[in-house]
Design a protein around this nucleic acid. Structure first.
Lengths: 232, 232
DNA sequence: AGGAATTTGTGCGTATGTATC
DNA sequence: AGATACATACGCACAAATTCC
């Protein structure tokens, strides 16, 4: 039967499955019914259902185990909020926290790479800690188009949580460039033990619409932490 | 016909197609023959070929346009063999090459993190270049379990190509830890202009069976290149 | 402008291989 | 060893987008 003006069936199904998960009707670790059984109850072919499940697996929402079954995957808070924070203690890990140093709205300096549409940006400076130990300084420039004003109180929680909750901004993708830099003057009081030469991460972040939303630079004490990237 | 001890057909096909591209037989923008025609000449079904093409599209090597055709997207060498080489010139990019300095089979030093099953490992030292400019030194320790002997001639081509072709070893996943290090003595003759303090990448690589296959350390001249990581 | 031909996308059904229980 | 469940592979029919005449 022709299905004019509608999404492909396998997309409809995958969207429906995602809604089921979000509604909490399916919980972490749960095994889905066998594919043939699901396909039958949904009145679609196994091949089409498999295509839907492949979409979920691609999004890491599902784990497919041959001979075993399809399992709902865990998405921990840590995976979510700190997915893009990539400094770790030399021994590995560490619980990330942050302390806001200053927030100002300024004209974008010319030396920054282009991002966003506005002439202005919010400059956020933070001290980053792992297990309460200061390990890095961060300067973030968020395009002013996302918010008119920003205060320190706004950012008391996770920055990306604030982005998502208050600004309707999801950081979907980042590009990091790691090199060596010198601690800026404003940071010397906050990382007193650090040597003048530090690791330096330049980041560009894209929002959910694939527009450049913010740029940032992070100076990290290479004696204490490393930049860690796990891939593929 | 049962096909014991071999990769799935659609993977074999997609790998073959990637090699065709890397060999330069297909150039950017070129349209592939129609799927039915390709499938016929390859003596496989259209569905299987489509799965292979989906793999390439996933890797952004191919653009598929309904009603039009399948078009080659990037024929960048980086996508295949140099997928895991992540140093770029400060201005971006650069064609990676390598020059073998030495190859030896030794007992694993105790200071290396654990990897592989053997007590010995092959130590490969290389000078890495971008656009023929020396930018980094590399010391790779490959578990001896993958090969009994290794010579410089073996490694004249791409190292990962050699792994794949001769050792049946695919590097599937890596973890990089970027920090600051000092140029080792053996390398000072090869990167004479570099300052003593350099960027330093510690890497662990996993093979297709998710076993740790090699560890490596790369010292890069942070004046010339950055470590670049593009994610999500 | 329009219709035919071409080409990829979707969906179904089936058979067999392979991993897990 | 047998049963179960996902993975691979084949083939077909039709829909949708593009291209060409």
């Amino acid at each position: 039967m022709p299905n004019t003006y509608s999404l492909p069936l396998y997309i409809q199904i995958s969207e429906m499955l995602i809604r089921e998960m979000q509604a909490g009707r399916w919980v972490e670790g749960m095994r889905l019914p066998p594919e043939r059984q699901m396909a039958e109850s949904l009145k679609i072919s196994v091949g089409t259902l498999r295509k839907s499940l492949a979409v979920l697996a691609e999004k890491k929402l599902l784990e497919r185990r041959q001979g075993s079954g399809n399992y709902i995957r865990h998405v921990s808070v840590r995976e979510g909020l700190y997915a893009f924070f990539r400094l770790e203690l030399k021994g590995g890990g560490g619980l990330p926290t942050a302390q806001v140093i200053s927030v100002q709205t300024l004209d974008k300096p010319s030396e920054l790479p282009p991002f966003g549409a506005s002439k202005q940006a919010h400059r956020i400076r933070r001290l980053r800690c792992l297990n309460s130990m200061p390990v890095a300084l961060e300067e973030i420039w968020l395009d002013a188009g996302y918010a008119t004003a920003l205060t320190e109180e706004d950012l008391s929680e996770s920055l990306y949580y604030f982005y998502k909750k208050r600004l309707n901004l999801w950081i979907q993708r980042i590009e990091d460039s790691v090199s060596i830099g010198r601690l800026p003057e404003w940071g010397q009081a906050h990382l007193p033990e650090a040597r003048m030469i530090l690791g330096c991460v330049d980041r560009i972040s894209w929002d959910q619409g694939n527009e450049k939303a913010e740029v940032s630079r992070t100076w990290f004490d290479a004696e204490k932490v490393s930049y860690v990237s796990r891939l593929k």
